[in-house]
Structure formats: structure tokens, C-alpha cells
Amino acid sequence: MSDSPLVLIIEDDADLVRLYEVLLSLVCTSIHTDVCMDGKTGLERVQREPEPRLILLDLHLPHVQGTEIYKTAREKTSSTIVVVTADVLAAKDMLSTADHVVTKPFDALMFKDFLVKLLKH
């Protein structure tokens, strides 16, 4: 794991953003996080430097849908993208294209272990 990886959180639910931050702090204390709480800022952020190591991406977002952000991020960055959604049908549709899809609610401790694995690579 590099010293201080950057993780971009695109999620409109403030409690979940906080949950991700706590889980990431448990993974590694030096992690930096960037948070976008709507689709529009998320889309702008993925097209800007610095490139995050990991993106935690929700699908149903205000203004711009997560699927569109996913497409842009996939084209413009080499970041690892984890789609985290509560929409199981959309999650099924994303399975064929996305690298990692996690449905809410998830087991927090297993999710933490999963983040450890992803950030190690």
C-alpha cells in the first residue's frame, strides 16, 4: 500500500460518506479522501487531477447518474472503481461492465477487508 492513497467518494448520503471515511481510516490512517455529494461535481472531479487510486461510486445521484460517471472515469482514469448501489437491478446490469459491484446494505467488516485488498494492488 502506498503511503497516502487518494480515494474519491461519490455518494449523496452523508451518513454513508461518513461510514466510508471511518472504514477507510480503519484500512489506513494516512488515506486521503475526496467527497462529491452529487453527480455533477462527481463527473467534473473524475476528469480532473490528481487521479484517485480508488473511486467508491453510487449509481443514483442528483443531476448526473453514476453510470455516466462510471463511463467517463473508465475512459479518463486508471482508477479502480467500486460501484456501491442499493439498486439491485441496476447492480445486476452493471455486473457485465464494472470491475466491482457491491450492493447496499453490505457487511461493513467484509467491505473493509475488500478495500484493503483493492488498495494493496
Partner: peptide, 24 residues
């Protein structure tokens, strides 16, 4: 259905997630 399911799952994720962290 999509909305209801989404609206129930998101807070559930926060509830169970924080509870697990507290337990840990």
C-alpha cells in the same frame, strides 16, 4: 419498487455498518 428498495437499503447500510464498527 426500485425507489422503495433503494430508500430502505441505503439507511440499512449505514445502520449495520456503524453498528459493526462500534462492535469492532
Amino acid at each position: 419498487l426500485g425507489t422503495v428498495s433503494h430508500e430502505l437499503r441505503t439507511p440499512l447500510a449505514a445502520i449495520s455498518g456503524f453498528a459493526e464498527i462500534i462492535g469492532l
